[in-house]
């Protein structure tokens, strides 16, 4: 008797597991997208700071050189432009890193997908068994 009870509770667990797996793998491709869109604001913020910080460093170097050498506007002008360019370089690198991250995420989902597809017939097998017992 206790054995039988054990068995049934085990089956019950399997059924619940199968259900949970279905619920999880159903909207497989959508989960990471919604997560990354949440992080979109912070990514935009990251890029903005990357742009501004290089501009600030460039401006500061130019201002310092002008003050030191007494060449009032020239170094400031040159380094303002260089700083802007460096900011663009920062933004480009950050953006490319973000693209890489997204691509890795997509790859990870692709790798997971066949696994869940393999498991699905398994869980589908379990489901019809349940009402029989």
């Amino acid at each position: 008797m206790p054995d039988d009870k054990d068995q049934s509770s085990h089956d019950d667990f399997d059924a619940r597991l199968a259900k949970a797996r279905h619920a999880r793998h159903g909207p497989a491709g959508q989960e990471p997208v919604s997560e990354s869109s949440k992080a979109g604001v912070s990514q935009a913020f990251r890029i903005g700071i990357d742009l501004i910080s290089a501009l600030l460093v460039g401006t500061f170097i130019g201002w310092f050189l002008d003050d030191w050498l007494g060449t009032k506007p020239w170094f400031l002008l040159i380094f303002l432009l260089l700083g802007g360019a460096a900011g663009m370089l920062n933004v480009y690198r950050t953006a490319m890193r973000m693209v890489e991250e997204v691509e890795e995420e997509i790859h990870a989902v692709d790798k997971k997908a066949p696994k869940s597809a393999q498991k699905e017939p398994d869980t589908a097998d379990l489901d019809p068994k349940q009402p029989e017992k």
Binding site: F45, R46, I49, S53, A54, L56, V57, L89
Partner: peptide, 25 residues
């Protein structure tokens, strides 16, 4: 001649972007 200063400024901007990001958030 143009790229080396840009790279150096980009390198020097790292601590600023790193600190401003945490502080501002």
């Amino acid at each position: 001649i143009l790229m080396v200063p840009i790279e150096i400024i980009s390198y020097l901007s790292r601590p600023i972007s790193l600190s401003v990001r945490l502080f501002a958030n």
